[in-house]
Design a protein around this nucleic acid. Structure first.
Lengths: 157, 157
DNA sequence: TATTGTTATACTCTATAACTATA
DNA sequence: TATAGTTATAGAGTATAACAATA
């Protein structure tokens, strides 16, 4: 049990946990749950995507997704449209109101949580990015069988 | 919206998501939910701690914690004991069975997910740890003041 | 046959807040 | 007063699996 990577994973988890604490307050204040915010953030700055894609990008399974999207639809933040090419599939996208929420809430979350990084230099960022990219690579390789392609649509988070 | 730290946060989230995918299967297979596994992992290799400490280390709020611990107690994995010095407080620790689960399930999760790190050198780890430690520091500094009362003047939307 | 999304079940987690008992 | 943990409520997320429509 002296596996060295455990320390890194523990740090990783602590960082993520800390960040969620930092941003969680603002997410909740927007009236969205974490999964809902996740969907909004994933759909933001895209032209929309299918349930399948959404599920792949957020760890939310299809059964759950139906409910989450339903609630977002009731709030008028997303809309669904049958896909033309594949009639089994739906296309989900943000509504105008959804875009507004994305464009107002998201930067708020960002701005507040970004204050913590005031002391970070360009080099600090470069170093961190390099390390995290490498980490992501090995983790994604390990999690094979899952969509290993990076999602260029979700550049914002 | 060009905030540089977003890239790091996004990488952080992707790493964590990837790792959860990697380990999630083994966690579920052990019959534990994620929060439950979180508790077991937090209590592992310690002599126990209070609800307060557990809540601080896991993002689980006290109201929820009561239920999670209750279920773990029913499964015979943890036990509670009134603290002597502070009679409001409970001490939670793993039972023998809890230790067994920690020592069998945890390394299993570990072993499987650890394979991904086969290519990591000592220097790679050192570098990653250094960067994550720094990141943790600024994030935790930013998240200070928690749990605190939200400032109602800061309403979003 | 395989895949997309729905539905159903049963449970767990979550936020919130009022409550108790200690401190 | 303040803190540790409980209880209550209402809602949301989760795993799982059977199902329909489409591919």
């Amino acid at each position: 049990m002296g596996e060295r990577f455990l320390k890194s994973i523990r740090l990783l988890a602590e960082c993520m946990q800390g960040y969620e604490r930092l941003s969680g307050e603002y997410v909740r204040r927007s009236g969205l749950t974490h999964p809902q915010f996740d969907i909004i953030a994933t759909l933001g700055n895209t032209s929309g995507m299918s349930y399948k894609e959404l599920g792949d990008k957020t760890l939310i399974t299809k059964g759950t997704l139906t409910g989450v999207i339903e609630r977002l639809e009731q709030k008028g933040l997303v809309e669904r449209q049958r896909s033309d090419c594949d009639k089994r599939s739906f296309f989900v996208r943000l509504t105008k109101e959804g875009e507004r929420v994305f464009c107002t809430v998201f930067p708020h979350v960002i701005a507040e949580s970004g204050k913590a990084f005031a002391a970070y230099s360009d080099d600090d960022f470069a170093d961190l990015e390099k390390n995290l990219s490498k980490l992501k690579t090995v983790i994604m390789a390990g999690a094979s069988g899952y969509p290993s392609t990076p999602d260029p649509t979700k550049e914002i988070i």
